[in-house]
Amino acid sequence: MTYPVVLAIALTVAAAAVLAWSWLPVGGRALLQGAARRADLAPPADDRATVVRRLQERRSAAAGGLVAGAWLAALLVPADPDPVDRFVTPAAVPLVIGGAFVGLAVAAGLHAVLSARRTPAQDAPRLARSREVGVGDYVDGIERWGTVVVCLAPPAVALALAVLPTGLLDAGVDPLRLGLLALVPPALLVLSTAASTAVLAAPQTVTSPVELAWDDALRSQALRDIVSTPMYAGLLALLWLGLDVASAIPDERLATGATGLWVMLALGAMVVLLVVVLATRPASHFRRRLWPVEQVPAASGARP
């Protein structure tokens, strides 16, 4: 059994355990409390069960996508049973985990689009807004524009590797994979824009400002899931492109060192990106844009 498969099995077990806990009564309450802290909203007094169910459905979709992404990545990683294989040993962990996060984002994004297409009752009341809202009201600019940069980087890197005399294609790197790594992130960026439009077009059937604020919180989470799909795909593509470059180095010792160094740099960049994003408290961005504290109760101890 190869190391990527072992890692995929571990992620599957962990996802199943978290998912099972989420559907327990105590898990549902914890989901609601966590969402309230992140969004800086007091838990809803009415219709609490509906909010919990929507959070549980999103968790289910995300868990399924994580498992699917982990297994797909584990099967795609060039896995040599030889433990000294220079590509698999240092690269299996970030590639499989990266694939898991891409799968999570894709599944959560699809769930957001499908949920938005649910047709509400024709006589359901709708609370009017004072102005039109857009993606910028729900997703922070760092996440949106950071995603654009991350998605445009793989095609630029792939083009440079193909045009410049790097010897990458001569070293046996699959040109089809190189093309997919370059084109998939921008394609997902275009699809995420269309998906965001579909979510924003869905009617919000609510009867009070508190209900509308919570619907905005869930809509914000849905749009952030959609935006994160091309971002994770772009990061994974950059990681894989770097590993392709490292594996093409003729000297085995230099190739092993370059692979390990690239993995460390990639993980460090991801940590820095995560810290920067969380510092902006993205989950409560909609709250700052749409809901002054005096209009709806705030939660104490809010976090990103």
Rank of each mutant, 00 (worst) to 15 (best):
S115M: 07
M270R: 06
V190A: 15
L76G: 04
L180T: 00
L223D: 06
V88P: 03
L181C: 00
I142W: 15
G64E: 14
L261V: 12
G27A: 05
I9W: 13
L254G: 00
V113S: 02
W262C: 06
P94H: 04
V102F: 10
R219Y: 02
P90V: 03
G234Y: 06
A107F: 15
V190C: 08
Q204V: 15
G141P: 11
A298H: 11
L236N: 01
A62N: 11
L274K: 13
G99N: 08
W23E: 05
P155K: 02
L218R: 11
V93A: 15
A298G: 05
T193N: 12
L164V: 02
G134N: 10
L104M: 15
R53M: 07
A237G: 03
D46M: 01
P25V: 07
A162D: 07
L152H: 05
V263Y: 08
V206G: 01
A194K: 10
V190H: 10
V96S: 13
R53N: 06
A15K: 11
D251F: 05
A17Q: 05
M1S: 12
L236H: 01
S115G: 14
G242I: 07
E252F: 04
T207V: 12
V271I: 15
L176A: 02
V275C: 01
S22Y: 11
P94N: 09
L223C: 03
R144A: 06
V210S: 10
Q33S: 01
H285M: 08
D174R: 05
L32M: 06
R117D: 03
S228Y: 02
L31Q: 13
P83D: 00
D170F: 02
V5Q: 09
L239I: 05
A49K: 08
A269M: 13
W214L: 01
R289Y: 08
G268I: 03
L180R: 01
R287M: 13
P292W: 13
G34Q: 08
L191R: 12
E252V: 13
S192R: 07
V271G: 03
A91D: 06
L31A: 04
Q33R: 12
A16R: 07
A42Q: 13
L169D: 01
